[in-house]
């Protein structure tokens, strides 16, 4: 459909290289995040191989952290998966917005493109395009290739490195998740409209966790859905 975003085939390698190059500062941030995730995964008894494998197949950092935290809290595998996937629903919105980049491509390119879509390269593609430069499907895939490679290597290294460290239990390492979530929350702040849904989510989740004889993971899912539902019917401004 839109020719300006569908670069000719001859331009594909050049766009791929540009995507690969431009993502580098973001990849460095992802490497640090990956090392941290590897440490946390190793704390749950995951080895370097399965941690790297998880990174390649899932390729969604915050969802992986939330799922492993739920495992650490003893919630069980099914609730850990549900909590992680709930965090990934925003990816649905990102790939839904890729209509122009993906339409008319062969199935393997569509599957590759959606798997390599993450916050960083999706945002970078839009930012580059806003500057008036050409950045389409292959630019997104170039950025994603760098990100997934760095993510696999850094998470596996984190897990391998953790095994050579002394036992960290009792040193406050259990609070590392909470601190990571606090930073994640501040980066998700979108102004005052964020406040009410977050308060509703937190209140319902805490009340369920304290008052109901169920696993707290259910409380947090009920709380999150209530807050998001409120945000949906909330009027702007």
């Amino acid at each position: 459909m839109s020719d300006e975003f569908q670069s000719p085939a001859a331009d594909a390698p050049r766009e791929f290289r540009h995507g690969l190059r431009d993502i580098t500062p973001l990849s460095i941030g992802v490497a640090v995040y990956g090392l941290v995730f590897g440490l946390l995964a190793a704390g749950q008894g995951m080895g370097a191989l399965s941690t790297g494998f998880m990174g390649a197949l899932v390729f969604a950092g915050s969802a992986q952290i939330v799922a492993v935290e739920r495992l650490a809290a003893g919630a069980g595998a099914v609730l850990a998966v549900i909590a992680g996937l709930a965090l990934n629903l925003r990816i649905l919105l990102m790939t839904a917005s890729l209509r122009g980049e993906l339409s008319g491509r062969p199935l393997w390119q569509i599957m590759l493109g959606v798997h390599l879509t993450s916050d960083e390269n999706w945002i970078l593609m839009h930012a580059t395009r806003n500057k008036g430069q050409r950045a389409g499907y292959w630019y997104l895939v170039g950025g994603g290739t760098s990100l997934i490679a760095i993510w696999i290597v850094s998470t596996a290294l984190g897990a391998a490195f953790a095994r050579s460290l002394p036992d960290l239990a009792g040193s406050g390492m259990d609070f590392a998740f909470a601190a990571a979530f606090i930073l994640l929350l501040t980066s998700l702040w979108k102004g005052r409209q964020s406040l009410q849904p977050w308060i509703i989510s937190a209140t319902i989740a805490a009340a369920c966790a304290l008052l109901l004889p169920l696993d707290p993971s259910w409380g947090l899912i009920v709380g999150a859905v209530s807050g998001a539902g409120f945000a949906g019917i909330q009027h702007d401004g």
Binding site: L185, L188, S201, A202, P216, L220, S226
Partner: peptide
């Protein structure tokens, strides 16, 4: 859908 990730993290911290 846009608000869901933040709400989930807020709920997780509350728990």
């Amino acid at each position: 859908l846009q608000a869901l990730p933040g709400c989930l993290i807020a709920a997780l911290l509350a728990v």
